[in-house]
Computed example of a mutant assay.
Amino acid sequence: MSDWLIGLIQGAVEGITEFAPVSSTGHLILVGHLLGFEGDRASTFEIIIQLGSILAVVVVFWKRLWSILGVGRPKGQRSLNLLHVILGMAPAVVLGLILHDLIKEKLFGPYPVLISLVIGGLLLLYADRFARRSRSESLDELTYKQAFIIGLFQCLSLWPGFSRSGSTISGGLLVGASRKTAAEFSFILAVPIMIGASGLDFVQSLDVLQKSDIPLFAVGFVTAFVVAMLVIVGFLKLINRIGLAPFAYYRFALAILFYFLVMF
């Protein structure tokens, strides 16, 4: 299969799945396995296209991100601020730095992803069923305690296939955030978390990069950016209507499908 087609397929997979609670990493690993696109080159490619998805978040939420940094935020008015983001990202950052090599060695493969797809799906069902009555209907109503607990849930996403958005949105529902608020906070947390994680992986992968890979990386990056932009806007509307259960059932179906496609 040609590089540009692989870039298009994997870029679309990344853009569609990065912010839905179905695990983009899990999909990229599984689809890459089916396409025969694996190894160091594929890992570096995944880093590049994840940055495309993050750029989409920056574009969609640029006003909110500026506000978090203090630009244009009314003084004395309660609102989401930098401390919320720090508390939300700190647990996963610390644990990720400690376990980075172990995770890369033991959990990046089809079989661990299949297991995490199922367990993550069970978490989605639990959160959807036992979500606390919403106390935080908007981002500006989130407390520091809620942000930190959501950050603890985000640690689950260090297991590829679990889904960063799935774990954080589930955590948000269980601590009393509305579906829309939980999803928006999940997207905002993705910016520093993914830039940091992707940046670290990118530096460690510099020796793999070659000029001949530029077309592949460019197609994947642009595709992931465009598709992610559309998915973010659509997902925020969709989650309020259907909740998390359909995504959980999709994860179960995907795990069964790939079990027979990949493991046999």
Rank of each mutant, 00 (worst) to 15 (best):
1 M>R: 03
2 S>C: 02
2 S>W: 09
7 G>C: 10
7 G>A: 11
9 I>S: 13
12 A>S: 12
14 E>M: 13
15 G>M: 09
15 G>N: 06
15 G>R: 10
17 T>P: 09
23 S>C: 14
24 S>W: 13
25 T>G: 00
28 L>A: 02
29 I>T: 05
29 I>D: 00
30 L>C: 11
31 V>E: 02
32 G>K: 07
32 G>L: 13
36 G>K: 01
36 G>P: 14
39 G>M: 02
40 D>P: 15
40 D>E: 12
41 R>S: 08
42 A>H: 02
45 F>Q: 00
47 I>S: 00
49 I>W: 02
51 L>P: 03
54 I>W: 00
55 L>K: 01
57 V>R: 00
60 V>N: 03
61 F>V: 06
61 F>P: 04
62 W>P: 07
66 W>Q: 02
67 S>Q: 05
68 I>F: 10
74 P>V: 13
78 R>N: 12
79 S>W: 10
80 L>P: 03
88 G>M: 03
90 A>E: 05
93 V>S: 06
94 V>C: 02
94 V>H: 05
97 L>K: 01
97 L>I: 15
99 L>E: 08
100 H>V: 14
101 D>T: 15
102 L>W: 11
102 L>C: 08
102 L>D: 05
103 I>F: 06
103 I>K: 01
103 I>Y: 05
104 K>D: 09
107 L>V: 13
107 L>C: 12
108 F>N: 03
109 G>H: 11
109 G>T: 05
122 L>R: 02
123 L>S: 04
126 Y>N: 01
128 D>E: 14
133 R>N: 07
133 R>K: 14
133 R>V: 14
134 S>G: 12
135 R>E: 15
139 L>P: 10
141 E>Q: 12
142 L>D: 05
145 K>C: 08
147 A>C: 04
148 F>N: 03
149 I>L: 07
155 C>Q: 01
156 L>F: 13
156 L>C: 09
156 L>R: 01
157 S>V: 11
158 L>M: 06
159 W>T: 13
165 S>P: 02
165 S>F: 13
168 T>F: 01
169 I>H: 00
169 I>K: 00
171 G>K: 00
171 G>N: 00
174 L>C: 04
176 G>V: 09
177 A>S: 08
180 K>Y: 12
181 T>W: 12
184 E>P: 04
184 E>G: 06
187 F>E: 08
195 I>S: 00
196 G>C: 05
198 S>K: 14
199 G>T: 08
199 G>E: 04
201 D>P: 07
204 Q>N: 10
206 L>K: 08
209 L>H: 01
209 L>E: 01
210 Q>P: 06
212 S>G: 14
212 S>I: 09
214 I>A: 13
219 V>I: 06
219 V>C: 07
223 T>D: 06
225 F>I: 10
227 V>S: 01
232 I>V: 09
233 V>D: 02
233 V>S: 04
234 G>S: 10
238 L>D: 07
238 L>R: 05
241 R>V: 09
242 I>P: 00
244 L>F: 11
247 F>V: 08
248 A>P: 04
250 Y>I: 13
250 Y>Q: 04
253 A>M: 07
253 A>W: 11
254 L>M: 14
255 A>W: 11
255 A>T: 06
257 L>E: 01
257 L>I: 15
259 Y>C: 11
260 F>G: 09
260 F>R: 04
263 M>F: 13
263 M>C: 08
